[in-house]
């Protein structure tokens, strides 16, 4: 197991194929600390949702805009920060996708899954950066 935390900053183009590259690097760090299946599943899902939101809704797939991912993987916790160059949004404005009237809407579940799978999820005031922490489960 590494002595120091594994940390890095990645700059991603606003393309979906960049998500897999970022995930591979973060999962590699999780494996170095022997994180279990439950943690890896949760972190991969939350990272996928945050990066996809940043690329699609934040940067509107604009090739001139970048997404920054800062990650820090330690023995007991993982911190992920995803920032885009978009206008930001208010997470409170996303309709409750579990309400009966919204259950058949095909979008709006990403932030909910991030909240469900991470120990802490915090957006900045502008709403273009999200910081997520997951404390080790197994």
């Amino acid at each position: 197991m590494p002595r120091e935390k594994i940390a890095n900053q990645l700059e991603l183009a606003s393309r979906f194929d960049e998500v897999a590259r970022a995930e591979r690097e973060v999962i590699g760090a999780l494996q170095a600390y022997a994180y279990g299946e439950t943690d890896v599943f949760a972190i991969k899902l939350a990272l996928e949702e945050a990066l996809t939101n940043a690329i699609k809704h934040g940067n509107n797939l604009n090739p001139n805009k970048r997404v920054k991912l800062d990650y820090e993987v330690g023995p007991q916790a993982v911190t992920l920060k995803v920032c885009d160059e978009g206008q930001g949004f208010r997470p409170g404005d996303v309709p409750d996708c579990t309400a009966d009237e919204n259950i058949e809407r095909p979008s709006g579940r990403g932030v909910m899954l991030m909240n469900a799978y991470m120990s802490e999820v915090q957006f900045n005031d502008k709403g273009n950066c999200v910081t997520m922490i997951r404390r080790r489960d197994n």
Binding site: K44, L45, E104, P106, S107
Partner: peptide, 16 residues
């Protein structure tokens, strides 16, 4: 092994 909210969205569209 893994699916995202975008996949759920597609399943909902298919169901509709």
């Amino acid at each position: 092994d893994h699916l995202s909210s975008a996949a759920l969205g597609t399943l909902i569209t298919i169901n509709n």
